[in-house]
């Protein structure tokens, strides 16, 4: 039977595992998160010690926030979803995709499901990786013990947040079919537009995708200035999911429906 969601999900996994994109994004995420962990352990405590006269490495909260660097894999997860979707148009594989599954909304749904799982998997890998890197960098230093409880407290949130964030990526890709445009717009939004909006329009930050992601991940990172003003976890997760569903629905009614020429 055509349009079987399970078949389509398996096909999406096959697409991802037969090209390099997924592995490049995973490597990128691991490199970037490790950099964060190293910087937070080596650089930040010196500064805070000088300022506050405490050793941050003795604080379990600080160490938890170091492990929470795993959440900075989010940009790679977002780009993974975007590139996976727009790549179909770029390489014109969308033709054979829609020939095999003429119900186009289902294709977008299958991609969303597949990349949600990948987002969660990348989250788990990143948390484990950050813990490993933290252990390695902390060797020979005085520090509070890293506990399973710390890892457990961030694992669920990061997995939930990145799973939904990957779906946001797929939806944005479906909406903006041009790969370069979608990537540029996404990076500008994450790096520039949303931070500026959050600073200049008070109270708006928690309602934007990045704010919703932070709420869903339920982590406090040292770089997070607006950490105090976030939605509860379920609120953030639902809001982020709502962004994904709205983008995907609008895309299904407009761009995805268009003629494939």
């Amino acid at each position: 039977m055509t349009g079987n969601l399970l078949h389509l999900v398996r096909a999406e996994w096959l697409k991802a595992s037969t090209t390099k994109l997924l592995w490049i994004m995973v490597l990128g995420a691991l490199g970037f998160t490790a950099l964060n962990v190293v910087a937070l352990i080596l650089v930040a405590p010196e500064a805070s010690a000088a300022l506050l006269d405490i050793d941050a490495l003795q604080s379990p909260e600080y160490l938890t926030s170091v492990l929470a660097s795993a959440s900075s894999a989010s940009l790679f997860v977002l780009l993974l979803g975007i590139i996976a979707m727009t790549g179909e148009y770029r390489h014109m594989t969308i033709t054979s995709t829609f020939l095999a599954a003429p119900r186009r909304g289902r294709v977008v749904l299958a991609k969303g499901v597949t990349y949600a799982v990948m987002g969660a998997a990348i989250a788990v890998i990143s948390v484990a990786w950050c813990t490993l890197v933290a252990f390695a960098v902390l060797i020979g230093r005085e520090h509070a013990p890293i506990t399973a409880g710390m890892v457990g407290s961030i694992l669920f949130g990061v997995a939930l947040g990145l799973a939904i964030y990957a779906v946001v990526g797929v939806s944005v890709g479906a909406l903006i079919k041009n790969q370069v445009a979608a990537i540029v717009i996404a990076i500008l939004w994450v790096m520039l537009v949303e931070p500026l909006l959050s600073v200049f329009v008070s109270g708006i930050g928690k309602w934007l995708p990045g704010g919703a992601l932070n709420a869903a991940m339920n982590v406090t990172t040292q770089a997070d200035l607006t950490a105090a003003d976030v939605l509860p976890v379920w609120g953030g997760a639902l809001l982020l999911l709502a962004y994904a569903v709205v983008f995907a629905t609008v895309a299904s009614l407009t761009t995805v429906r268009r003629d494939i020429t």
Partner: peptide, 17 residues
């Protein structure tokens, strides 16, 4: 997709269908 092999290209389609 230029980086996908011929067999994998067909496997993707066969799986989806």
């Amino acid at each position: 997709h230029p980086a996908r092999t011929a067999r994998n290209h067909l496997r993707v389609i066969a799986t989806a269908a």
